[in-house]
Nucleic acid binder design. Structure first.
Lengths: 349, 349
DNA sequence: TTGAAAGCGCTAACAC
DNA sequence: GTGTTAGCGCTTTCAA
């Protein structure tokens, strides 16, 4: 293994000079810099990460905690994770992959050991047990031992109480409202919402509940009726759900789907029942654009900006680590794209 | 931050004693051990990762390189990644997430800096440019500077030349053979294979080509005709592909699908064309079980054992790091589960 | 603009 | 069974 000392010797300078060439923290004459850089290249030198972390008190690693469960739409998580890794590298950080498995202990372990300089948490629940460890500022009852002691962190998702936290998320409430607005504008008066699996609601995942809130309050404002049904994915589960919906509200002409694995079954079943999309019923999906355009009917949808979320999370974290910017809640504005699955409500029979 | 020295002082022992209590590398009297453990708990001590890596010459980190592209079936990659993270933790390792973006440079960086003790590579191509850096043993032309210098590594996937490499993969060739066997056994004589996107083949990804090999050689043995067509996912692309297939081979009664995003479109289009599954045509999918059971027809399928692959990769890597076990190619035996999508070939008209 | 040297917190000989 | 101590490779004062 090549060490900094070897590079120094090869270049005929002192160790500190090599270090400063690398960090740029003091000015170096052009000739010295070139000699050092030359030696670095010739010897194939890579600074030792452990030594750096020890002496410099920063590991240049960001921890990313992904959920262990996979009852959520996996490609979105993956896209976020990849965006995080890519953006982090662009800022000189590596990414440590943690699963939710260890729970709050992982936070303590990573914080305490200096393994990572900061963390990003995905799949945050409304009352998340990891939050007390991360809350900064002057939040009462926080569990850190002193000011400035907490791990810089960014949540992807919104807990109930965001005091002293930095969060990045799609504005799910606005997303729900946007869907209702679109359908109401087309004259639909009876809307059914096909949601995530029941477990997602029971777990009090923020995004699902907030979407519902947005949906319902805009429905109230526009005089539209909304019926919400959680749903496991797949054909069988959806067939049941759909039957119950039409049973209870035969006049339903609009659907909002927030569950990727229910999208295609819904379209298939509607077709099978002789209900044309969008002539008889309109469908609005909350899903990644890729899913919307690959479906059997090109879906009017609100996109889930996975990459954007990952990228923004890292950028906020890096800003914090550089001492710029503090706690903040960033809500991304949802955008609805009209495609072939929504149209005017049919005239009442 | 609590240091080992502080723990030692608090417990009234020397630093080395604390270190040995932690590592278990020499025997400690019960009373001393308890005093030390007590102090560790009271002070909330966590060993510093950087110092450990520096002094101990091991970071206890495994790097996992995932593909940046997402034209492959993402949930499988994610499941592997999560299995890797989980299994690694169980062995005391953390996982560093690298994207393919940096290419071979990432390998050099991680190796050279001692950031990770070992790496796992996913999505290996037949002639992968990262391989020369990883090849160990006495492989000719390897790029390491001396014996024992290379990074311990495990590939998930099989390159063309496995000399000096450890690989874990599903036996794709046997998988292809198994599919043909099943269909041939049911009397099908004309089989169409709907494959991954053309880009996957152009990139010479091992699994796709090997599956084809297995498919074709077993077809030759059983006197079955095979027509292979790569296919982008989605309805439109599949409609085209399917039309071409029936155009060229009107007598096709068996399908093998190796492309998750073609599964549902295929079923829908067959239905739409009035071809009943499995009465008129049989379908065998190569996909995770979850996809097979959630489809609109429960699919006869060969499962992709994602978790198993991730787990085995880590276990082999840990064995290598512990000085046990060397290079080896581990091929997991495919298993075909008969469900509702395959049946006897219809009598010739 | 550069060098010398004191640590960073831990591991692992080497003592006893 | 336990203590002492010399590094591991780097960053960063302090001095020149």
């Amino acid at each position: 293994m090549v060490t900094l000392a070897e590079v120094a010797q090869h270049a005929g300078v002192s160790a500190s000079t090599v270090s400063y060439v690398l960090s740029g923290k003091r000015s170096i004459s052009a000739t010295t810099r070139q000699r050092v850089e030359q030696s670095i290249r010739e010897l194939g030198y890579h600074p030792n990460a452990g030594a750096r972390a020890l002496a410099g008190k920063r590991s240049n690693i960001i921890a990313l905690m992904v959920p262990l469960r996979t009852d959520m739409y996996v490609p979105v998580m993956m896209e976020i994770a990849i965006a995080v890794a890519t953006t982090a590298r662009a800022h000189g950080y590596d990414v440590l992959l943690l699963t939710g498995e260890e729970g709050p202990d992982a936070v303590r372990r990573v914080t305490g050991s200096g393994l990572a300089d900061a963390m990003i948490l995905m799949d945050v629940e409304l009352e998340d047990e990891r939050l007390p460890l991360l809350r900064g500022g002057d939040a009462p009852g926080r569990a850190t031992s002193g000011p400035g002691d907490e791990q810089p962190s960014v949540l992807i998702g919104l807990p109930a109480d965001t005091t002293g936290l930095t969060c990045v998320d799609l504005d799910w409430s606005a997303t729900g409202a946007l869907c209702v607005e679109h359908l109401a504008g087309l004259g639909h008066r009876d809307i059914a919402v096909i949601g995530e699996a029941p477990a997602v609601y029971e777990r009090h995942t923020g995004f699902a509940e907030r979407t519902l809130d947005g949906l319902r309050s805009r429905a109230r404002e526009t005089g539209v009726r909304v019926l919400h049904r959680p749903c496991e994915g797949g054909y069988d589960a959806l067939a049941l759900t759909l039957a119950r919906i039409f049973d209870e509200r035969p006049g339903t002409t609009g659907f909002v789907v927030q569950n990727e694995s229910a999208v295609e079954p819904l379209l298939a079943l509607l077709r099978q029942q002789g209900r044309a999309v969008p002539e008889d019923v309109s469908v609005v999906a909350i899903c990644p654009d890729q899913v919307a355009v690959q479906a059997s009917v090109r879906l009017t949808s609100v996109a889930i900006p996975a990459q954007e979320m990952g990228r923004r999370a890292v950028e906020h974290l890096v800003a914090k680590l550089d001492g710029r910017g503090g706690d903040e809640v960033v809500l991304l504005t949802p955008e609805l794209t009209v495609r072939a699955s929504s149209g005017p409500a049919p005239a009442a029979p």
